[in-house]
Design a binder for these strands. Structure first.
Lengths: 130, 130, 130, 130
DNA sequence: GTGGTCTAGACCACG
DNA sequence: GTGGTCTAGACCACG
């Protein structure tokens, strides 16, 4: 995992997203201890406060569990069901991306293929009749 | 088109997106004159500076064209081909939305259906066997 | 509203609680603009970052709404329904306080009276047959 | 008694609270010897330092008494009268819990019922016309 | 060693 | 003028 310092995306959001990616990819599994705030900051060449902010956000989203004095752990993903608010947010984000693509005349097949690729890369088993 | 003042999305981005939506929907077609910065600001109950910023962004993206003294016009979409940079940005945005959805265990069928719905609403002609 | 710098309660939590109190008391009503992060920091003789943290927490709890560049506003309390998690937390907190009181042999009548007083001070109209 | 390692409440506070609960419930009665720091640590699968901290806190609150070489004992509750400082703390804690509940529009009846339940569970004899 | 809180101060995006 | 992000660095509570 790395922070793209050129991106206009805040560092802490990149960390939040990166952790989720690692969980989806199976690099991190439920129960795993993730690096301490300080270690992660050293790894990512950023400030501990920034990592701390990311971890707090991840905890608010029920992705990790942090125990004072002991560390931070990956939660069971089954536990974390999104609120309808989060659901709406995700849906809107997806739709906006699609509209954007359509506007710039990305061929439909390509849009579909991007989605499929991502699902295959991150989504694990896919039903045959899809 | 309206601005959602509750949204955490910047007003100017909402305007940029709204114009693109209107074009995709056919409400605006190439060559159409769009309201002046001041008129649009009045329509949207917002600050002219905000509209101006949105128009500049739309011009940078080759979506509209401002002719001094004559007004602002919707460009021919054929003219506006996205740079590979824009293309990457769109792809990344789409993938991130999908990853987010996967993380929160949105069923694959639902993700697909969201994409299809959006395409059908905005994308015009869709091949039957798609 | 004031921060008790002697208290072991974090400043930012005191601010969160203080805002809720002011809403319950009617000092703040839905739609009201609350002081900017900087102004509030000056009022409370604390650091803007601390106020910012409090405001973020209040927004996460659906108590206030912050609009970039415009300010921070009190939300309609009807909108903010607590999650079952929040509910559990509140219940636990209340029960712990009661257990503590019982342990130190606070008379039952006194415990009841504390609760009633608080309800009368903050709860507005109370049904007669209570 | 058990420690909830998921809770964000410090372990030592959980122990302090747990002992008080046991006394209120009658599981522990004045004069009872409670497990040594080491035994308790083994029982609770935690660090002896943590138990030690809890015992010190309980001693400071006049709940238990440690006699060097003989062990740790539950004090007579009559002996342990709270300082007015402790009293204020308890009152504040209770009021805060009630304010929190009111803010989130927990019905008054429910707040009352939570208090009653707790009293009935822990408080022993309750006057009929209460 | 772990995360939590707080300060001081900088720079930025938005309206 | 508004909130958001980030850094650097301090001190603290907990285990």
């Amino acid at each position: 995992m790395q922070i793209n310092k050129q991106s206009n995306k805040p560092y802490y959001e990149q960390i939040v997203f990166g952790i989720k990616e690692d969980i989806l990819k199976g690099i991190l599994i439920p129960g795993d201890k993730i690096p301490s705030v300080r270690d992660m900051a050293a790894l990512l060449l950023t400030n501990p406060n920034t990592v701390s902010k990311a971890y707090k956000e991840l905890e608010a989203q029920d992705v990790i569990l942090t125990v004072r004095g002991r560390g931070t752990f990956v939660k069971d993903s089954a536990t974390s069901s999104p609120s309808s608010k989060q659901m709406d947010k995700i849906k809107t984000k997806l739709q906006e991306a699609v509209v954007e693509a359509l506007y710039f005349e990305v061929p439909l097949e390509e849009i579909q293929s991007w989605v499929k690729q991502t699902i295959q890369e991150f989504g694990g088993e896919i039903n045959g009749n899809y």
